[in-house]
Amino acid sequence: MTASNSETLRRFIDAVWNKGELDAIEGFLAPAYAIRHDPGDPWDGKTLDAAGLRERIRISRAPFPDQRFTILNCFEDGDQVAIFWTWEATHQGDIPGFPASGKSIAMSGATIYSFEDGKIAGHWQVADRLGVMQQLAQR
């Protein structure tokens, strides 16, 4: 039995984003991964291969190695899966302008993932990155 796209996405979020199992990326991805809309993300508008996405996730996780996404809602429609999520992490590594602080940080967002032949092919996302920066700036 083939996994649904939403099941595949849940496994991807848990293994790759939450646990940092970057070598697992190839098993989840289509040949090209398009970041269609992700304001504030340096990769916004880019199309990546597995190595490029692995590097993006490595860099994104570095300051927050204990990060955890919690999927609040998940909706599947054809080749798209929408999730509403929360994210929590401890600021353990430097970000330009924000040296590691040990602060607990949280944000929320929504992401629509697209799939091709059961593989993740990209996303469109809105996330509260400003809220993260405000939390980091608090003394």
Rank of each mutant, 00 (worst) to 15 (best):
M1Q: 00
T2P: 06
S4L: 11
E7T: 15
T8A: 15
T8F: 13
R10G: 12
R11G: 08
R11K: 14
R11C: 08
F12A: 10
I13W: 09
A15M: 01
V16G: 04
W17R: 08
G20Q: 13
E21H: 15
E21P: 12
L22N: 09
L22M: 14
L22Y: 12
D23V: 11
I25A: 15
F28K: 05
A30Y: 06
A32G: 00
Y33I: 00
H37R: 12
D38I: 07
G40L: 12
D41Y: 02
P42N: 00
P42D: 01
D44N: 12
D44P: 01
G45M: 03
G45T: 02
G45K: 02
T47V: 15
T47F: 06
L48E: 09
L48H: 13
D49E: 14
G52P: 08
G52D: 13
G52C: 14
L53Q: 11
E55S: 13
P65D: 06
P65Q: 10
D66K: 02
Q67T: 00
Q67G: 05
F69M: 04
F69E: 02
T70W: 01
T70K: 01
T70P: 00
T70S: 03
L72E: 11
L72A: 09
N73L: 12
N73K: 14
N73W: 14
F75I: 15
F75R: 10
E76W: 09
E76S: 14
D77W: 04
D77V: 11
D77M: 07
G78A: 05
G78V: 07
Q80L: 10
Q80R: 14
Q80Y: 06
V81T: 11
V81Q: 08
V81S: 07
V81H: 09
A82P: 03
I83H: 08
I83G: 08
F84A: 11
T86S: 15
W87S: 05
E88V: 06
E88K: 10
A89T: 06
H91I: 08
H91M: 08
Q92F: 13
Q92K: 14
Q92R: 14
G93E: 13
D94M: 09
I95M: 12
G97N: 05
F98G: 02
P99D: 03
P99G: 04
S101M: 06
K103H: 02
S104T: 09
A106T: 13
A106Y: 02
S108N: 09
G109M: 10
G109E: 09
A110R: 03
T111Y: 06
T111N: 08
I112Y: 00
Y113E: 00
Y113L: 00
Y113W: 01
F115Y: 03
E116N: 10
E116C: 09
D117T: 11
D117N: 15
G118Q: 11
I120M: 11
G122P: 04
W124M: 03
Q125S: 07
V126L: 15
A127W: 06
R129N: 12
R129D: 08
L130P: 00
M133E: 01
M133D: 00
Q135L: 03
L136D: 04
Q138S: 14
R139P: 04
R139I: 04
R139D: 12
